[in-house]
Design a protein around this nucleic acid. Structure first.
Lengths: 339, 339
DNA sequence: CTAGAAATGCTCATTTGGAGCATTTCTATG
DNA sequence: CATAGAAATGCTCCAAATGAGCATTTCTAG
């Protein structure tokens, strides 16, 4: 390979570049009744293979001044919802990976976004279908202890996949598979890391255990047709985008005060804790949680109290914005990997 | 706004969507002689307005099976370098933001990547131009204490920008500007957060203080033509991508063992510390750093020692891969915000 | 042989984080 | 009205992690 002499003069302007379409996809997350939920647009069920999808649409540079404006436009059109907080997650170049490989389809690159919102009104509730995110990822639901589906369905099937001789053309040696299984699913005694949602989904996809994998690589369907469905499938790569979203929120609330995007203006500390636990999984010591958020300066009392809590009235708090100016990375710094 | 009834049937396939070109850009980072460096492709200087750029090229879905393969292809072609570790950073929808707004140009969306590599040979050194990243961001260089450019040029000019009445059409109220200034640049007594590289660059861009802003919005050029250049400019949005890359590495080495991508196979703990300090800024207590990486299980001794270190010979260590299986988020957990 | 520079080993005071006991103050109920 | 039950809150204790610095060991240069 020659060196810098090979530099092309104008690498950015090529007339013969085939066109690419950009899809914008929003994982809109909220917490309702202590349940983490995501806004899905249900496709009509009369079509065969209909599946849930995230609000989404193509980026039209002439109409949308920025990617984010395009996203907000599509979401507003499809659900009527105006969300506040949004951040970009990731750009996937192979959505519905092999399924759309036919050369006549325009190649679609999809950009996933995470939006956080608080459901204020029943109106908000009816703007689409809010589904618990655990419907798509039942193995992530540790609220009632370690989910059975792990030891009953997932780990055994992944184990046999990991021990299988890797297919030709696959760069994965078996040792790597077994290691990834251990890392992602805490197979032998390791600690469960609640942030590895995406890694787990991608492992299941590679192993051909989620419906999307069988959809994209029909040759897998025969081998893995038995056994329980692992979560509800979604259209294209939307479940992967949702997995990315969950990973991101779970990581981010620890060093950015984004949890307050999910709260009303005033709340009790226990309500805040319940919301954090909805996102991360329930494992927080009540008194220590209180000490944590108060001493971090994340909240301040409003002076009001809330009665009919079932016990002693609780002080109401609000988010203390000044914390952003005081600390470099303010967030609910619960320790990772103890769900 | 109506609700879910407005859902479009096939939001992903629109024949009338204008074409978009995707640019792939690599910030290839290394550490050479304790200096953090990035691989730039220098444009010929004979053209007016020539500027440094990152290795980059358009994504061609027919030729490139994935985005990442496309990126590697362009980098190999332009520099001859094969890097190992790479991760996607962010997708920018408005590169060279207003400059290319002419409707006839194809709209370009650029995806930035971060690659980490160790410079093995002098051959690697000659594959392009390795520039210290502080050439582009002199205000990030705290190796000899707080950089003078901050108090001499940056903060005063940002202060007057923050106090200026916001332009019409701008949603920023002055109070927000002053707060962002405080957050990003630790204006009054706050702690400098070494991870906020991108935030600082974007603030300078908005304030019209970097050359790219004057290039994209010529009306700013008059107001801000005086004063020192703030760092070397780059083509399109490449400096923004580099800022994103620096932010990401600085954050990531704290919870992922990516620092070892920058190291040779064997190294002394002090060499490791120097590399970390090159990335983060120098502020580490030697003995505690050693305790940190050893007790975290990040490294293991090879049994060899390295002499001619200028003093007592140093034990050689290597990265201990098993740590990935043992800990959820292994990294050099130095405290944030103390550079 | 000696000074200087690094590498290494250890100690000590603080801070932070995990657990649990004890008290206070509501609501629901007989 | 008195009492049980449920939460909210206040505090204490202990162990682990972190920040600083002193002391020793073992090279190289001169």
């Amino acid at each position: 390979m020659t060196k810098a002499s090979a530099v092309r003069r104008e690498p950015h302007i090529r007339k013969d570049t085939p066109s690419v379409e950009i899809g914008l996809n929003a994982a809109i997350v909220s917490v309702h009744n202590d349940e983490p939920v995501v806004l899905v647009v249900r496709e009509t069920a009369d079509a065969v293979g209909a599946a849930d999808s995230l609000p989404s649409g193509p980026f039209a540079p002439r109409e949308h001044r920025t990617l984010e404006i395009g996203l907000r436009t599509w979401v507003r059109e499809q659900t009527g919802l105006d969300f506040g907080y949004v951040e970009q997650l990731y750009t996937f170049g192979d959505r519905g990976r092999h399924a759309l490989a036919e050369d006549r389809e325009p190649h679609v690159v999809s950009i996933g976004y995470l939006a956080l919102t608080h459901i204020e009104s029943t109106d908000d509730l009816q703007r689409g279908t809010w589904h618990s995110w655990y419907q798509y990822f039942p193995w992530e639901d540790w609220r009632r202890g370690r989910p059975e589906i792990l030891d009953r369905d997932i780990i055994p099937r992944l184990k046999s996949w990991a021990e299988m001789p890797p297919m030709r053309n696959s760069p994965n040696r078996p040792v790597e598979r077994i290691d990834r299984l251990r890392m992602c699913f805490a197979a032998d005694g390791g600690a469960w890391d609640e942030e590895k949602v995406l890694d787990r989904y991608e492992l299941l996809y590679e192993a051909g255990l989620v419906a999307e994998a069988r959809r994209d690589r029909p040759e897998l369907a025969i081998a893995n047709s038995d056994g329980e469905q692992l979560g509800t499938a979604m259209i294209y790569d939307h479940r992967r985008i949702l997995a990315t979203a969950i990973s991101r929120v779970r990581a981010k609330i620890k060093y950015r005060p984004v949890i307050f995007e999910l709260m009303p203006a005033e709340f009790t500390l226990f309500e805040l804790q319940k919301t954090v636990e909805a996102i991360l999984g329930p494992h927080l010591h009540k008194q220590n949680f209180r000490r944590l958020v108060e001493s971090a300066g994340l909240v301040e009392p409003t002076g009001q109290v809330k009665t009919r809590t079932g016990g002693r009235p609780a002080k109401l708090f609000r988010f203390r914005r000044e914390v952003l100016l005081e600390r470099p990375a303010p967030g609910v710094r619960v320790k990772p990997g103890r769900a």
